[in-house]
Design a binder for these strands. Structure first.
Length: 506
RNA sequence: GGGCCCGUGGGUUAGUCUGGUCUAUGCUAGAUCGUUUGGGACGAUUUGACCCAGGUUCGAAUCCUGGCGGGCCCA
């Protein structure tokens, strides 16, 4: 019966995540996908509010860590790209020469991101001499300006960020928030006096990510990406992967340590206290609307979304019941709303002339953490009814309103953290191991679909390739939380604490 | 990168194989009025669609080609 009713709303079961996800983002009114360009959804107010609340958390972290917000132009002239291309091919060559050959893969992609950018080649009636492209990320425009701003050690560290839209011409299947062509993007770019300064920044980035994940109430796997999977411009890259309900991992954040390689390409240098010219060391840190995609996937259930309170566009919805029978209901509920607003909560009064049940279902779909009901009965008893989106219906005294709501939002956060931790341990399981036989490498048992496999690994690139081939999965890299005790490497058998994961990535 | 499927009111769906009886069906949503309101209300009235461009044909939602859009599978 209940199932049938839900079917009317068109929400598939979350077990069928590939159907649930695209349906829920539209039914919950986060986006409208009908804009006639693939991968460019219209943000509806409810979805945009959630995104801007995530941005607000991000901005608070940036403020805390002394980054300053900039806003760079959207268009980049093609010739600026030459520096970057030269750098990348140079670094690629250097890597091929300087690095243990076993760390190399032969099939590295060519041509950088030229294939995946949008070009502006005309202006009015004229064809442009120098075509421009829409930023897919802002290294090039930013590092064109940085040398103009950095002259002395006193100008460092330079800590910048911006929250803007970037563009990538995705040809694959697109998915709201997860793979889109116009990306709501956060990027922090910093320049430091030396490598230690950049190292410190990377540590700080890791901390910022953990703070955000705490507010969004889910865990992630943080890994140093394997060298073969690292952007050639980076010295090393650290990625933050969330495990979605279908077992695929979603990379929601990355931070790169660039060392001084970009500074050399873009001539970003300063004069130190000894009057010597030095190259800067740089980092970048990127996140995107994928964070919202992770929130949707991680916390939602068969009844709809569940927003973590910190980013819930509406934290508390108030529903008058049978207000026509008692004329004190409407003013009382307005008074409650006013109290809650004054206490800093995001509140909505649902005055719609529909049955209370319909309201409950609506706000459940939209993932509002708390629903308060007030009717004539409650006015008499001096109480109100509170339904929690994570489950449970409670009666409380009206005098306790603020405390009850505040406490219930905290309980919601804790419950979401418990659930997402359980979710994670359900999906991340030990790797069954692999054995070399006469016929080649054989998995010790078949792998389950939709799981992330965890194991100790200390091999080289060809060892890694053996595992990727045999499993059909991809290496996430060296987890920043190694095993407490050494274990035998899955391929070489050498004892190691290096924790690694194989997963199917988005 | 390779293969496959799909496109009908806001959403969903029938009709497409076998061209005409389809200015197009049901559900849902929307609008108006009335009765209603403690977990998806009911009645009456009503608005609203064949993705785009070519082609085949006396005749195309239906067949063919291309574009755009959506989705799936494999690498």
């Amino acid at each position: 019966m209940a199932k049938h009713d839900k079917a009317k709303r068109g929400i598939p079961s979350k077990d069928d995540f590939n159907a649930w996800y695209p349906a829920i983002v539209e039914i919950a009114d986060l986006v409208d996908k009908r804009y006639p360009i693939k991968g460019m959804d219209v943000w509806k107010p409810y979805g945009w509010k959630a995104m801007t609340l995530i941005d607000t958390l991000t901005r608070a972290e940036m403020e805390r860590t002394d980054h300053e917000e900039y806003n760079f132009p959207l268009l980049v002239p093609e010739d600026l790209l030459d520096k970057e291309n030269r750098l990348v091919s140079l670094l690629k060559k250097a890597r091929e020469e300087g690095v243990d050959p076993s760390e190399l893969r032969l099939d590295e992609e060519e041509g950088g991101f030229k294939k995946e950018v949008y070009w502006v080649k005309h202006a009015g009636e004229n064809e442009l001499d120098v075509p421009m492209f829409l930023r897919p990320t802002s290294e090039t425009p930013m590092y064109t300006m940085f040398p103009l701003w950095v002259r002395s050690h006193g100008d460092l560290p330079l800590k910048t960020f911006q929250i803007v839209n970037t563009f990538r011409y995705e040809t694959k299947q697109t998915r709201s928030f997860i793979r889109v062509r116009e990306i709501h993007f956060f990027e922090a770019h910093t320049a430091h006096k030396d490598q230690a300064g950049a190292d410190e920044q990377i540590t700080q980035d890791a901390e910022i990510v953990q703070n955000l994940l705490h507010d969004l109430c889910f865990p992630a796997i943080v890994s140093k990406r394997p060298l073969w999977d690292t952007f050639p411009g980076a010295w090393y890259s650290t990625a933050v992967d969330v495990v979605m309900p279908n077992g695929r991992t979603l990379q929601v954040a990355t931070y790169h340590h660039y060392k001084d390689q970009w500074a050399k390409a873009f001539d970003l240098k300063y004069e130190d206290t000894n009057g010597q010219t030095q190259f800067c060391h740089q980092t970048t840190f990127g996140m995107s609307e994928r964070m919202l995609g992770a929130v949707v996937g991680m916390h939602g259930d068969d009844a709809g979304l569940i927003f973590p309170p910190k980013i819930a566009p509406i934290q508390v919805v108030l529903m008058p019941v049978a207000a026509h029978l008692d004329h004190t209901v409407a003013p009382t509920i307005e008074e409650m709303a006013a109290q809650l607003k004054a206490a800093g909560f995001r509140v909505k009064v649902d005055n719609r002339d529909i049955r209370p049940g319909a309201k409950h279902y609506d706000w459940e779909i939209k993932g509002v953490p708390l629903r308060l009901e007030l009717g004539p009965r409650d006015i008499k008893s001096g109480q109100f009814v509170m339904s929690m989106r994570t489950g449970g219906k409670e009666f409380h005294d009206s005098s306790e309103l603020i405390n009850v709501v505040s406490d219930a939002l905290t309980r919601t956060e804790n419950e979401l953290r418990v659930r997402s931790a359980a979710h994670m341990s359900h999906f991340v399981i030990p790797f069954p191991g692999i054995t070399q036989t006469d016929g080649g490498w054989q998995l010790n048992s078949d792998l389950e679909d939709g799981k992330v496999y965890e194991f100790a690994f200390d091999g080289n690139d060809s060892d890694a390739e053996i595992l990727e081939r045999a499993s059909g999965l991809t290496f996430l890299g060296d987890c920043i939380e190694p095993f407490a005790e050494p274990r035998p490497c899955a391929v070489t058998g050498r004892m190691t604490t290096r924790r690694q994961h194989l997963a199917r990535m988005y």
